[in-house]
């Protein structure tokens, strides 16, 4: 989504979302956090091509925000959609995960990280990635991507060996 469209969507929907979360007992900070979670899920589905809007983006975001809020308060009794459940689980895990974890990602270098995000999270094609990151074609972007993954994987493996030995 383009930046301006995102700002527009935010401006249009957030006040309504804030009203909703307030009604359900939340404060301004919680309203914002819940809205951001809903937006992340929306944007992730959009990137993956699994976004299915039946009425409007606004209704979709409000519905997601409501489910997320009720679920966090143990007041939602239906099963969550699979991707929403994975999102919630991973975000809870990420909050507990020690901050050093990003240290392993950063070992691969900033360029690697941004490229991996572009490929896995933003779902850009290798053609686009080659163009955006200045690689000489798809093949070269692919090789670079594998190198980045391998670097991080190796660093993680060393950490695990270390933990097994000393913990």
């Amino acid at each position: 989504m383009k930046h301006e469209s995102l700002v527009e969507l935010y401006r249009e929907v957030f006040p309504e979302a804030a009203r909703l979360i307030k009604r359900l007992g939340g404060n301004p900070e919680e309203a914002k956090d819940t809205f951001h979670d809903a937006l992340l899920i929306y944007l992730e589905r959009e990137a993956k091509g699994t976004l299915q809007i039946h009425t409007s983006a606004k209704a979709y975001l409000l519905g997601t925000a409501k489910i997320l809020w009720l679920h966090a308060k143990n007041q939602y009794f239906d099963p969550l959609p699979e991707d929403v459940e994975a999102f919630v689980d991973e975000e809870n895990e990420a909050a507990d995960e020690d901050k050093n974890v990003f240290h392993y990602l950063l070992l691969a270098g900033e360029k690697c990280l941004h490229m991996l995000k572009a490929f896995y999270y933003d779902n850009l094609s290798l053609q686009q990635i080659a163009a955006n990151f200045g690689f000489n074609g798809v093949r070269s972007a692919t090789v670079q991507k594998h190198k980045c993954i391998e670097k991080i994987r190796t660093a993680l493996k060393k950490r695990n060996v270390y933990e097994e030995r000393f913990n």
Binding site: E90, A94, V101, L116, Y120, Y121, R153
Partner: peptide, 12 residues
Amino acid sequence: HVHKLIRIFSRR
């Protein structure tokens, strides 16, 4: 695990 970390990083 690397894929998961990339997701967490990207979300941040």
